[in-house]
Amino acid sequence: MKDLDRQIAYWDTAGAAKTFTHPLDFGWLAGADRSARVLDYGCGYGRTMAELSGHGFSRVCGVDLSPALIARGRRSRPDLEFTVLEDPPLLPYSSASFDVIVLFAVLTCIPDDGAQRAPVAELIRVLAPGGLLYVSDMVLQDDARNRERYAAHAAGFGTPYGVFTTGDGAVCRHHTPARLRSLLSGLDLVHERPIDVTTMNGNPSRALQLLARKP
């Protein structure tokens, strides 16, 4: 599952041209100092990094496993700090290095249960006590098209229900809200809200955002 849970070939080709849309709720970050140390894990081309910078956060950095997406980000925002993640999920930072961590539409790109837990554990390691982990990810959809592809993938490959393959070759996962909450066990859940998003392939979809604090 290691290659499947990274899919670098996809993100360096078809995925490198995608547009990402999960919205940041800056009301959730109203109490964060603008000098807070902020990490965007799975930053892609830096869309959320740019938004954070535009709202006054001055110490924002991002990591992603795709060199192509990082190169796109550096071209569009050379003022921001982008790093290629060489050995995901391991981060080149000491423990308690960040006050705010953003994890947007990353878990959907990691089909396997254990492979999802590993980056969350690493993010909790580098999050300072009292720091915030802001997660936005896809939930199970209830339309016939999605139900059929969830069932087909589970039957064909033995993957968890909710895993599917997109038309252009990415293997993705949609989650129950309980699954997303369980990944944040050990943190204190501060906020939760369902949202409507447009997927990277242009389809309307439902997602869930969660804000959790490290004790």
Rank of each mutant, 00 (worst) to 15 (best):
R173T: 12
G73M: 06
D188V: 06
S136F: 00
A68R: 11
G42D: 05
D196V: 13
H174E: 00
V163A: 12
T83L: 15
R145K: 14
A212G: 04
P177C: 08
S58C: 09
R117Y: 05
A96W: 01
D142T: 08
D99Y: 02
P119Y: 08
S76P: 06
G162M: 09
D168T: 03
G56Y: 07
A36Y: 13
A16C: 12
R74M: 08
D112A: 15
F157N: 15
Y41G: 04
P119K: 14
S182T: 05
S136E: 02
R125K: 02
F57I: 08
F26A: 08
G73T: 12
G202M: 09
T165W: 09
S182C: 05
R75N: 11
P23V: 00
G131C: 01
L187G: 02
S76R: 15
L85N: 13
G42Y: 01
A170G: 09
T199L: 00
H22I: 11
M49V: 03
T159A: 15
D3C: 04
D99W: 06
P88W: 10
L123G: 07
G31P: 04
C43F: 03
P119L: 14
L211Y: 03
D5E: 05
G31A: 13
Y41Q: 07
T19Q: 15
D64E: 10
Y10A: 09
C172W: 03
A16F: 10
L133T: 09
A16D: 07
K214S: 00
S185C: 14
T199C: 01
A144D: 15
L90R: 14
S58L: 11
A151R: 12
A152P: 02
R125G: 08
G31S: 08
Q7H: 01
F104K: 10
R75K: 14
A128E: 02
P160T: 02
T166L: 03
D40M: 04
S66L: 05
A32F: 09
D143K: 12
S35R: 14
T21H: 13
R206C: 01
Y134M: 01
K2T: 13
L183K: 06
I8K: 15
M138W: 12
K214Y: 00
R34N: 10
E51W: 07
P67K: 07
L208Q: 12
P23N: 03
H55Q: 15
V102R: 05
A155E: 15
A16W: 04
G169W: 04
M1K: 09
L211G: 01
S53M: 12
G131N: 01
M138R: 13
R74I: 05
P129S: 00
L107A: 10
G27R: 13
V139S: 06
A178C: 11
A155G: 09
V163I: 04
R149S: 10
F20S: 03
P67Y: 06
V126M: 09
V163E: 02
Q209K: 10
E86G: 06
G186N: 06
C43I: 07
R147W: 03
K214N: 00
F57T: 04
